[in-house]
C-alpha cells in the first residue's frame, strides 16, 4: 500500500479538455474520484467528490490544467513517501493507502487558518490536499496530523460509526500537539491557542461534557468539532489541544506512546485543571 499513483490520475485529468466548469467537475469525477470508489463502501464518485471538496480538495475549473501541471512538478508524492516511511517506523503505524492531491487555493479560510493544506484520515486510508506553494515542512505538518489519526484509529476497539465526540477531541488534540512538537507553533491549525483553565473548564462543563458519548452521526458532534452558530470555531480541536497540553505538563510521554494511550488516561487531568481554576 502506501502512496497511490494520484500523479497519474492528475496527468490524465490535465490531458482532457473542458469547455466549462461543469465538464471540469465531470473530468475530476472520472479521473480522480472513480478510482477511489473501491476505497469507500457504497459511495458513488460524485458523493466522494463533494465530500473531498468539502474537506479541502481543489475545486475543478475549466482552465486549471496549467495549475495542476505546475503542482505535479513539485514532487509532493516523493516528499510524502519519505514522511510515510519515517513515521510508519517511528510510530509503528499502519500500512494504508495514501492519496496526495492538490488543495483548494481559492479558499481564504483554508489559507488563513490551515496554511493552505488539508487532509482527511480513516482507519484504512489517508488523503492529503496540498497547496502548490507548500514547503516540505508544511507537507510534513499535515502528514503528521493525519497519520497520527491513522495510528490511533488502528487500535480503536470499535467500528467507525461508533466513534464518539470524546474520541474525536482526543484524536485532534494529539494530532495538533504532535504537529507543534515536531514542527513548531507556526504549523497546524492557527485558530488553536492555549486558553486559561477557567475558560477550558467553562467550555468543558457547558458544551463538551454533556455530549462526550454522542456518536459522529449526531449533528451535535460536528457542530462542536467545527463550531459556528454560537459555538467558537473548531471548539473540539481547541479543547482537545488544550487537554493534551495540560496532560503533557503533568506526564512525560513521547508521541509514539501518547498516540496509543486510552481516552480515560487523558480524562484524569480534568479534575486537576478544575483544581487550578
Amino acid at each position: 500500500m502506501g502512496l497511490k499513483p494520484t500523479n497519474q490520475w492528475l496527468k490524465a485529468y490535465t490531458q482532457l479538455e473542458a469547455t466549462s466548469n461543469a465538464e471540469a467537475f465531470r473530468k475530476q469525477q472520472n479521473k480522480i474520484c472513480e478510482p477511489l470508489m473501491g476505497f469507500f463502501q457504497n459511495a458513488e464518485a460524485d458523493i466522494i467528490q463533494d465530500y473531498l471538496i468539502q474537506n479541502g480538495l481543489f475545486v475543478p475549473v475549466k482552465n486549471d490544467p496549467p495549475y495542476i501541471q505546475a503542482w505535479l512538478k513539485k514532487r509532493f508524492l516523493t516528499i510524502t513517501e519519505k514522511l510515510y516511511q519515517k513515521f510508519r517506523q517511528k510510530w509503528n503505524g499502519p500500512d494504508i493507502p495514501i492519496f496526495v492531491l492538490p488543495s483548494n487555493e481559492r479558499s481564504l479560510e483554508l489559507s488563513k487558518w490551515y496554511g493552505g493544506n488539508a487532509g482527511l484520515c480513516y482507519p484504512d486510508k489517508l488523503f492529503l490536499f496540498i497547496n502548490s506553494n507548500a514547503t516540505a515542512k508544511q507537507v510534513a505538518a499535515v502528514f503528521v496530523h493525519e497519520y497520527s489519526h491513522a495510528c490511533r484509529l488502528k487500535h480503536f476497539p470499535k467500528e467507525e460509526q461508533e466513534y464518539q465526540l470524546l474520541d474525536a477531541i482526543i484524536l485532534e488534540g494529539i494530532a495538533e500537539y504532535a504537529v507543534r512538537k515536531l514542527l513548531g507553533n507556526a504549523y497546524g491549525n492557527q485558530r488553536l491557542e492555549i486558553i486559561p483553565p477557567e475558560t477550558f473548564c467553562s467550555y468543558w462543563e457547558d458544551l463538551i461534557s454533556p455530549h462526550l458519548s454522542i456518536t459522529r452521526n449526531d449533528a451535535i458532534h460536528d457542530h462542536i468539532m467545527y463550531g459556528g452558530r454560537g459555538i467558537p470555531k473548531n471548539l473540539g480541536y481547541l479543547i482537545g489541544y488544550n487537554l493534551i497540553k495540560q496532560f503533557i505538563k503533568r506526564n512525560t510521554y513521547p508521541i509514539s506512546k501518547l498516540l496509543y494511550l486510552p481516552n480515560a488516561t487523558f480524562l484524569d487531568v480534568i479534575n486537576d485543571i478544575r483544581g487550578h481554576e
Binding site: F40, A43, I47, I48, D50, Y51, I53, Q54, N55, G56, S107, E109, L110, W113, Y114, N117, A118, G119, L120, C121, Y122, F127, V142, H145, E146, H149, L153, E160, Q161, A168, L171, E172, A175, N189, R191, R216, N217, D222, M225, Y226, G228, N234, Y237
Partner: peptide
C-alpha cells in the same frame, strides 16, 4: 447530507 466520516484538520465546507 451524506457524511463519509473520517477526521480532517478542522476545515469543512458547509
Amino acid at each position: 447530507r451524506r457524511n463519509l466520516g473520517g477526521y480532517g484538520i478542522g476545515f469543512f465546507g458547509y
